[in-house]
Amino acid sequence: MTDTGTLRLATLVGAVVLALLAGFALGRAVTAPTNIGTRSAAEVDDHLHPPGTEPHLHGGGVNGGAGQVAGLSVSDTGYTLVPQRTQLPAGTQVDLRFQIVDSDQRPVTAFEVVHDKPMHVIVVRRDLTGYQHLHPQMSADGTWTLPLLLADAGTWRLYTDFTIRDTSGQSLALTLGVDLVVAGHYQPGELPAAAGAARVDDFTVTMRGVPQQGAVAPLLFEVARDGQPTPRLEPYLGAYGHLVAVRAGDLGYLHVHPEAELVGGAIKFWLAVPSSGDYRLFLDFQVAGEVRTAEFTVTIR
């Protein structure tokens, strides 16, 4: 090859490299996160590490992640939820026991503490009533014991929300779910209509914002007490609020945690939903040492 040909080839290669570098820089600039408006689902993945310090979603594994529901499977990424029983009596408290086992059927015993607890259990009936947020105790052999009272007959979904270290030493957040059956006459309730405010005891909780598909949008919740000054919200499990969203139909699960500080006195979350449809939102908040749950229906078109 002549010197002229060599020079032309070098010039062409240099131009391609510069173009690739410029495209990479532009992509970084376009996807840089902001503190206003919506966020992409990928940006929310950053909030999974470390847990409890930034607003983030729980789920993880194959069926979880930012903007994707979790809890639809009893097994995920080699880990399985194994309950000792799935049939419970109505109106009687029982000790429900379960383990999380790995792909070799060995019980997992090392769980990370996330929001003050190594295991969060959410229970809700198939008609999206009877919500409970509970915290079982684990024995040395990896068996969790959960005192559980299900008042009404029907099929209930139990979600185990936890974080472990996988075989590579990385944090792995998972939500595994199983159905519990309570025998008796089942009278399903109608899903309440969508509304921007919810009543619980003498509190009114107002929701501002609209969840979106594929983009993480802000949701703010303002808590007021009838005829009294604005109540002082207290941290509960390391945050000013905990938000669980459950999709009607398949009971797909999202567990969202808020920004570390209140925003104008409101609890601020970032939430993405994966599809259109109806969702039931459950907001846990604490005032004067008592935890209450405000419930909302949201319809995504």
Score class of each variant (00 low, 15 high):
residue 291 V to Y: 02
residue 292 R to F: 01
residue 244 V to E: 00
residue 66 A to G: 15
residue 106 R to K: 15
residue 81 L to Y: 03
residue 213 Q to P: 00
residue 42 A to N: 13
residue 239 A to H: 03
residue 278 D to Y: 09
residue 50 P to V: 12
residue 30 V to R: 13
residue 265 G to Q: 05
residue 158 L to E: 02
residue 240 Y to F: 15
residue 213 Q to M: 13
residue 204 T to S: 09
residue 297 T to I: 13
residue 296 F to Q: 02
residue 285 F to Y: 11
residue 139 S to K: 14
residue 121 V to D: 00
residue 163 T to W: 04
residue 151 A to G: 08
residue 46 D to V: 12
residue 296 F to C: 06
residue 166 D to I: 13
residue 16 V to Q: 07
residue 134 L to H: 07
residue 102 D to T: 04
residue 146 L to I: 08
residue 61 G to M: 07
residue 26 L to W: 14
residue 69 V to P: 05
residue 85 R to L: 12
residue 101 V to L: 07
residue 218 P to S: 05
residue 62 V to T: 14
residue 35 N to R: 12
residue 109 T to E: 11
residue 131 Y to A: 06
residue 169 G to C: 12
residue 151 A to Y: 00
residue 6 T to H: 10
residue 63 N to M: 07
residue 81 L to M: 10
residue 131 Y to I: 12
residue 147 P to I: 12
residue 242 H to F: 03
residue 109 T to N: 08
residue 48 L to V: 10
residue 225 R to T: 01
residue 80 T to A: 12
residue 180 L to C: 06
residue 11 T to H: 08
residue 251 L to Q: 10
residue 273 V to N: 03
residue 116 D to M: 02
residue 156 W to T: 01
residue 165 R to Q: 13
residue 228 Q to T: 09
residue 266 A to L: 01
residue 250 D to P: 01
residue 56 H to V: 00
residue 155 T to G: 06
residue 206 T to N: 02
residue 98 F to A: 07
residue 65 G to N: 03
residue 122 I to V: 15
residue 113 V to S: 15
residue 221 F to Y: 09
residue 162 F to C: 05
residue 138 M to S: 07
residue 222 E to L: 14
residue 28 R to L: 15
residue 159 Y to G: 02
residue 246 V to S: 01
residue 115 H to T: 05
